[in-house]
Structures are given as structure tokens and as C-alpha cells.
Write a protein that binds this DNA or RNA. Structure first.
Lengths: 231, 231
DNA sequence: TGTCGTCTATGTGTATACAGATGCATTGTG
DNA sequence: CACAATGCATCTGTATACACATAGACGACA
């Protein structure tokens, strides 16, 4: 009886804390993406359970989802670990990202509605101010929206899934891209080429512009080297 | 004590039956892919648990993986259901598949080693016999291998993951493609164009050939219509 | 002193128990 | 007779218990 009341209280606390599985996934993913946890770090189920004040069961659920997202690896009878990608694999992800962006840009050039084209152009034009003000954080937000518009503009749900998934897996390696001097202006110019091609319905041009945009932004080996030095 | 011995026995049975989570995933995926279960069918945890003679816990694990694979959908406090894709979404998957195949063919034309090129060509040539013998089953096996060679030949791990994943999700809708009259010969001819382009290191040609090959094979709306009539 | 074996501690995998939510059926009322 | 409300049954979500696997430490023997 007393035990049950304890359970009740705990349950209330959990509900109040609002620690759902989804939130745990977000929290752990954030820790990985922001570098709080480094590749190779163990994710102990018991520690996580006590940390989020839930039992191991939902923790395992969350780890399963993170595993599906590719952020953590799991082996039988072993703790889940933050996935440790090697340089070759990282390069393959950046290349895949470039290919997917190119597809989205091509399809966007062909399929975007008038409204979508106008919205893309307007948002892009407005971002010039952010470049002048050197507002890196805000530009990063705009940049995410800009690319999301391309993914949506392709009007293909499955490709949207693939590109979003790839983007999530690359997130840990894209930190602070816009801090580099002149990077904002360069990004804007590259966006401009893409937007212009899309407005002209120039599919091939948009695809090529998007490919080189992402390829240049990534420069995988450099990114990886810097990321590795942190470890 | 007695309870424990019962558990022991059960455990032995389970081990003997060898019903691991991975096997359950395979079994359920097969049921979906082969049409034993139709889109919209409920996947009751308790029924599955008794069916595989395990508790609900590993069943939930398996359902989570199937959800990540996109074969089943889950909503809170509701049974998992076999994903019911609409025509638009199915079309988007076929289109994505064509784009991914094109990428793999392009990259294969550029990157395959001499050995890989020879193996591809040899296997392709050998498949002509299967066409003459109208060996649909065997040709289907060969076809899978052929495409897998293209995915591997691109030398990009992440793209391999994406294309494999997409292929798995499309599996339920590709049954009996090779039963159609003349389909084998047509497939062979299309493979031939791809192989020739790859042997010449003609990236653009290989990409285009692969795209139209997959696009024609799929013909999404027809496939969907027939799949739908079964339901 | 080094190496191999065993023992223990920690953590995962699975089973079971229980609380909450949802959907359906049954009953009561207009 | 139809519709709504309530009760019940069923299934999911989470907690907890227990058995097995693995790794690291300690001791024995060469």
C-alpha cells in the first residue's frame, strides 16, 4: 500500500517533470550534437534512468530510437555508445548530403508553387541584412529554414525524410560553420545562385549550385580534423 | 524456487526456439513484405508475444525497430499498425529510389575498381541465360545482386544505407515484377545500357540509364492500383 | 615477477506486475 | 427507435525483479 502511494507520488513527479520518451531522445541527441558527449562515450541505462528520474524501460526505448537515428551504436550485452564515425564514413555522409541537396534543388526548380518561390526569394533577400549585421546565430537559423524550404519544395515526402535524417546525423559535425570570416557573405552569394536558378526554373543550374554549396560548406576532412582534435 | 525452475525451462525453450529480437523483426517484416499482413492491420503486442513465445518487452523492441524501418506506424496508446502509404507517398518513394539508383550508377561509373567492373559485367552476361530460360525467380535473385553491386560500387557507405533502407520500404510493393511477359528481356537490355556506360566510365550515361530503368520498372500508380485491389 | 584463472561487481536482456487510456458494448432515456 | 452516457474489457506505457553476460580485480602458481 505504501509502496503504491510512493509509486503514485513518483508518477506525479514524472508527469510534472514531463519526462516523456520523446523528450529524453531530444535531450540525449542534444548532448551528442552539441558535443557534451563525445563519440565513444558510454550511455549507461541505469545512470540515464536515474538522471531523468524514470525506469530503465523508457530509457531503452529512447536509446533504440537514437540507434535508429544513427546517433548511438548498440551491441548485445554492452552499453550503448555515441557513434564514432571514421573520416571515410563522415565524408560519405557529406557527399550524400550534397547529392540530396542537389536533388531537392532540381526538383524545387521544377515543382515549387508560385507562393513557395516568392517565399524563398523573400526570405533569402531578407537575410542580406543578417549578413551585413554579421548576425551569425540568426543567419544560422535562417540558413536552416532556407534549406528546409528546398527540401519541402521538392514535393517528395520520402526524399524529405532522407535528407532530414542525413542532416540530423551530420549535425554533430557542423558546429560553428558561420564563425569563419567571410563565411556569411559567401553563403549568401551561394544561396543567391540557387534562388536565381530556381526562380528561372533552371533545374540543372539549381542542382549544381546546391551541390557545390553544400560541398564547399562541408569540406569534410577539415571539419573532421577539428572535431577530432577536441577529443 | 519452483517458479525459477519454470523460468529456466521456459528460457531453455526460448533459446532452443532461438527467438531473438532480430529474428522477430525479420519474421514480422517478412509477413508485411510478403503480403501476409496488409497495410492497416494491427500488430497486437500480446498476440505477437504469445505467438513468438516471449514476453511483451522484446516484442516492443522489435516493433520499435520496425517503426524505425518505416514498415509499421505507432501512436501513443494505440496498437502498432502496418504502415498504410497513400499513392502520393508511394510515388515519392519510387522517385527517390530512381534518384538514388542514378547517383549510385554515376558514382559506380567513376569509382568502381577494375575487379568490381569485371564482376558486374560477368554477372550481367551470365544472366542472359536466365532470360532465355525464363527463370523468373533466379533472375529476381540476380537482379537484387546486380543492384546491390551498383550500391556498393558507389563507394559511399551512407548512400548505401539510404538506398538499402528505401529498397526495404518499397519491397511490399514490388512483388512479381518479373512475371509480366517480356519483362525479363527488357530488364536485361536496360541493365546492359547501365553496364556499358559504367565500363566506359560514362557517369552521366550510367546515371540516366539507371534512372529510367528504375522509373520504368516501378510505374508507381499501376503497382499501387494492383496492390490496392488486393486489399 | 609475470601470467593465467577465478571471482565479483556492474550492467544488460527479459519477464511480470500494475496503472492509465482507449474503444466498444450495454443500458437508460428522450 | 435512436442517441447518449456509463461501465467494462482490452491493450499500451512504465516500473520492478531476476537471470545471464561481461569486464576488471585479485590471488595462485609457474
Amino acid at each position: 500500500m505504501q509502496i503504491e502511494s510512493v509509486k503514485q507520488v513518483r508518477r506525479k513527479e514524472i508527469i510534472r517533470a514531463g519526462t516523456t520518451v520523446e523528450q529524453m531522445v531530444r535531450a540525449i541527441a542534444d548532448m551528442i550534437v552539441t558535443g557534451v558527449m563525445s563519440p565513444g562515450d558510454k550511455l549507461d541505462e541505469i545512470s540515464l534512468a536515474s538522471r531523468f528520474d524514470v525506469s530503465r524501460t523508457p530509457v531503452r526505448e529512447a536509446l533504440g530510437q537514437l540507434c535508429a537515428m544513427g546517433l548511438v551504436g548498440r551491441e548485445p550485452n554492452r552499453s550503448a555508445v555515441v557513434t564514432n564515425v571514421n573520416e571515410r564514413h563522415l565524408h560519405s555522409m557529406f557527399e550524400a548530403m550534397a547529392e540530396l541537396e542537389a536533388i531537392c534543388a532540381r526538383l524545387s526548380a521544377q515543382r515549387m508553387t508560385i507562393d513557395e518561390r516568392h517565399a524563398l526569394e523573400a526570405e533569402h533577400r531578407a537575410s542580406m541584412q543578417l549578413v551585413h549585421r554579421r548576425a551569425e546565430e540568426e543567419y544560422a537559423t535562417h540558413n536552416t529554414q532556407f534549406h528546409t524550404r528546398l527540401y519541402r519544395g521538392a514535393h517528395n515526402d520520402h526524399i524529405y525524410d532522407l535528407v532530414t535524417q542525413t542532416r540530423a546525423r551530420l549535425a554533430p559535425f557542423r558546429r560553428a560553420q558561420f564563425r569563419l570570416p567571410g563565411r556569411l557573405a559567401k553563403s549568401y552569394d551561394e544561396h543567391d545562385v540557387i534562388v536565381t536558378a530556381i526562380m528561372r526554373a533552371d533545374a540543372a543550374g539549381a542542382g549544381q549550385a546546391a551541390y557545390s554549396h553544400v560541398s564547399i560548406v562541408s569540406d569534410a576532412s577539415t571539419v573532421f580534423a577539428s572535431a577530432k582534435e577536441d577529443v
